[in-house]
Design a protein around this nucleic acid. Structure first.
Lengths: 141, 141
DNA sequence: ATAACTGTATCAATAATAGTTACAAATATT
DNA sequence: AATATTTGTAACTATTATTGATACAGTTAT
C-alpha cells in the first residue's frame, strides 16, 4: 500500500454525503461503501473538516454532512485538503553544490514543480463535486 | 525515502549529458553531481535508454550520451520514461459493488485520473531539455 | 444514566524508493 | 590475447508512507 488513494476516497466520501439528503452519515456506513475501516474514513473526514468542506457532530446520532452545497465544492479544494500536492519529488539528498549544475538544478526543478502542481489544481478546479455526483448517477442506469 | 524523485534525477542527469559536449559521461561522475550511488544513476539511465533518450556504451571508455539534441527532448518524454505517471491513485481495495455509488465511482475516478495525467503531460510537453539547460546556466551567474 | 458516535493515539502489515555490494558481460587499449 | 574499465542487473538492507486495526477518551441525543 504505497500509492496515495486519499483523494479517491475523499471524492467517494463526499459523493455519498452529497447524495445523502442532508442527513448525518456515520463513518461506519461510509466505510461499508468504500470497503475499508471506519477509522480510515474518520481520518479523511478530519482533513475535509479542517478544510471546511464537511462538518461533523460527535455523540449519539452524530455523523458528518457537507458544509456547503456540492455545486460549491471544487475538486481542487478536495485535492488540496487531503494531498501533499506534489506530482514529482525533488532530490532526496541535495545535489553536489560544487558542480555548477548540481548547484542550480534544484531551484529550476522547484519552480517547475510549482508550475505543474498549479496546472493540476487548475484542471481539477474545472470540476465540482456536483459534476462527479451527476456522472456517478448517470453511469448508474 | 518514499517520494519518487526519479524525474528530478532524470532531468539532472540529462542536463549534465546535454552540457557534456557530446562526450560519454560515466555513471560515477554523474553520481558525484547528483550525490548518490552510481547504480541509482544506471537504473535511471536504463529507463532513459529504453525510451530512446540516451545511448550507452559498455566497456572501457564507455558511458552515456544524449541520443538526440536537447532541443528535441521534451520534459513530457522524460516524465513518461521514468514515472508510473499517476497524480493520484484509485481505491486500494475495490469499493462495495452493492452500493450504487461504490459500484460507479471507480470508473468516474479513472476517467478523471486520465484527464489529470494528460494535463500534466501537456504542461510538461511545453518545455524541452534545452529550456532547462538554459535556465540552470542562467541561474549560474 | 445510557447508548452511540467522533476524534485520536498507537501499533502492525504492506509496499515503494533509495542505497549498497557484487558480479557477469562487453569493449578499447596495450 | 590479456587487461583494465565500464555498463547492466540481481539481490539485499534501510527508510518511509499508506493502509488497516484496536482501543479508548470525550461528546451528545434520548
Amino acid at each position: 500500500m504505497a500509492a496515495n488513494s486519499q483523494f479517491s476516497m475523499a471524492v467517494h466520501i463526499l459523493t455519498l454525503l452529497g447524495k445523502g439528503d442532508d442527513e448525518n452519515l456515520k463513518s461506519e456506513s461510509i466505510a461499508a461503501s468504500v470497503n475499508t475501516n471506519p477509522v480510515v474514513i474518520r481520518r479523511i473526514l478530519g482533513q475535509l473538516s479542517h478544510a471546511g468542506l464537511v462538518s461533523s457532530q460527535t455523540g449519539a446520532f452524530g455523523g458528518t454532512r457537507l458544509a456547503r452545497p456540492a455545486a460549491e465544492i471544487s475538486l481542487c479544494e478536495i485535492y488540496k485538503s487531503v494531498s501533499c500536492g506534489e506530482v514529482f519529488a525533488l532530490h532526496a539528498k541535495a545535489p553536489n553544490k560544487d558542480c555548477p549544475i548540481g548547484a542550480n538544478i534544484e531551484a529550476v526543478l522547484c519552480n517547475l514543480q510549482k508550475e505543474i502542481d498549479q496546472a493540476v489544481g487548475d484542471k481539477l478546479g474545472q470540476y465540482t463535486l456536483a459534476c462527479i455526483i451527476e456522472k456517478v448517477c448517470a453511469d448508474n442506469t
